[in-house]
Amino acid sequence: MADALLETRALTAGYGEMQVLRDISLAVQPAEIVAIVGSNGAGKTTLLRAISRLIPCGGEVTFDGKSVSHATADEVFGSGLVQVPEGRQLFDRMSVEENLRMGAYRRGDRRAIDDDLDRMYTLFPRLSDRRRQLAGSMSGGEQQMCAMARALMARPRLMMVDEMSLGLAPVIVDQLLETMTAIRKEGVTVLLVEQDVHAALSVADRGYVMETGEIVREGSARELESDPEVQRAYLGEV
């Protein structure tokens, strides 16, 4: 598919001698929500780290028609491919507002940044009350909102969200998933990596299933949800 926004071909990556990813080929179309699901240790986080160029990788990654296989992490970010990392990774000793401004680190358009700040506070009203609070002192759900808002401040074309649901109450997860659908309506493509298969497939258009560093299944979210193999392995149904 030539018009894919993000495409990986035969992507391999690992840490030192240990190869974690083998031959990952996937594509994300503009304005899609794509889920990558799989159990702990399947290599999902490694995949996002490789795409963001935090770790070296082999194979080919193209974003918006351009190869980013040899780019640096900040160049990948600059091209509009933005990651919300696992564990949030906020700047703990900065205020919420400063964290959001860090999302706009590569932008120079001051007035538009201020407008976007207001948009974020409308999208996440909880953050609005806490804009002066240190990010590290908030609850997990608020931190996740802050992490997503920080990513959106970069005006991403594709937002990769890693294990958003980890450690959060189901109510908060549902709220964040709703936000993600709203974000997509504004034209942001979303690549969602989740252990919570059910939550991920409930908002996604398509999905990939990863196991031990390989993609073992792909299809529409509906197909995957009703796939007996996926149900047995991940959804706890027989």
């Binding site: 933005v82 990392p85 990774q89 906020l90 700047f91 900065m94 860090m102 680190y105």
Partner: peptide, 21 residues
């Protein structure tokens, strides 16, 4: 902005790299 980037790199280098520093 640059001052924030410097503090970001000192607080969380991975996140700083992910956000364009």
């Amino acid at each position: 902005r640059v001052g924030r980037g410097i503090r970001a790199a000192s607080q969380n280098l991975v996140a700083a790299r992910l956000y364009g520093v």
